[in-house]
């Protein structure tokens, strides 16, 4: 096969895969700007009216608020827990680290249904009512994993002599931690938090089992689609969720890349 023919083949295949992945997303995004109230292709006309009415919808607003609260709190908790877990694991023998990492990552590795059911029966057994608290606890489990993995990867590339150098220069271990370790982990912690936020913000399965009467944004979408109501608003909300999750994911990746260059 000659060079240019091969190029054309490769490009065609690549574009086909991209289209397969992204076309459905594009369709939803376009529907969000549809002037009509029933989804029919091609769209009737462009309009922002559904954005306005969605923003005015009390249900959507409260769901958005709950989603932001849950993701924010879970991410904050996870940043502390994940960083401490990584720092604690660092320096232990590799077998212990492997075992510890295995158990820590279970909440992400296992199917969400299992985690959800487990949480549900656990909270019930403990007599905890399902509300914002249970939702935050549940989300913290998998958010912690993301922060932990990010920080752990960075720690592994950090030369242990840096801390020795700090102590050599007169810094106590705690001073060394504050002035050397923490600044060098900052990027990894931040990118882990951004990814964790994105993960929590669009979580459906675990939330279903632990939210009780609370409704997060993804749960609202789920409910609306099941009932077949508010379809134009669903498109707008999907658009917003995509925007909100995409921004931290891209930022997180950039942070991680720049941190690994140092």
């Amino acid at each position: 096969m000659n060079g240019s023919l091969r190029n054309i083949a490769v490009w065609t295949a690549a574009l086909a895969v991209l289209a397969f992945l992204l076309l459905p997303l594009c369709v939803v995004l376009i529907y969000a700007f549809d002037a009509a109230s029933v989804q029919v292709w091609p769209i009737r006309g462009l309009s922002l009216k559904w954005f306005v009415s969605t923003w005015a919808d009390e249900e959507v607003r409260s769901a958005l608020l709950i989603s932001v609260e849950v993701a924010g709190l879970a991410t904050l908790l996870a940043s502390v827990l994940g960083t401490l877990a990584a720092l604690g694991m660092n320096g232990l023998s590799s077998r212990i680290v492997q075992a510890g990492s295995f158990f820590l990552t279970l909440p992400i590795a296992m199917p969400g249904v299992l985690t959800g059911i487990a949480m549900n029966s656990f909270f019930t057994t403990c007599g905890l009512p399902f509300n914002l608290v249970t939702l935050v606890i549940a989300h913290t489990t998998f958010c912690t994993v993301v922060v932990y993995s990010n920080v752990m990867a960075r720690l592994r590339r950090l030369s242990p002599t840096l801390l020795e150098a700090a102590q050599d220069m007169g810094a106590t271990p705690f001073q060394g931690f504050l002035t050397v370790t923490l600044p060098l982990l900052g990027g990894a912690i931040m990118s882990g938090m951004l990814l964790a936020f994105a993960l929590s913000f669009d979580e459906v399965i675990v939330s279903t089992f632990t939210a009780g009467s609370e409704t997060t944004l993804p749960l609202w979408i789920f409910g609306a689609i099941r009932l077949g109501q508010h379809m134009p608003e669903v498109n707008v909300v999907v658009f917003a969720v995509m925007a909100v999750t995409l921004v931290p994911v891209v930022m997180g990746q950039k942070l991680a890349a720049s941190a690994s260059r140092e």
Binding site: S159, T161, L162, E164, A165, D168, M169, L184
Partner: peptide, 14 residues
């Protein structure tokens, strides 16, 4: 009251 020059220099990258 001792300072060390490390083999890998151990300069603080940040």
């Amino acid at each position: 009251d001792v300072n060390t020059m490390f083999q890998d220099y151990a300069l603080f990258p940040h």
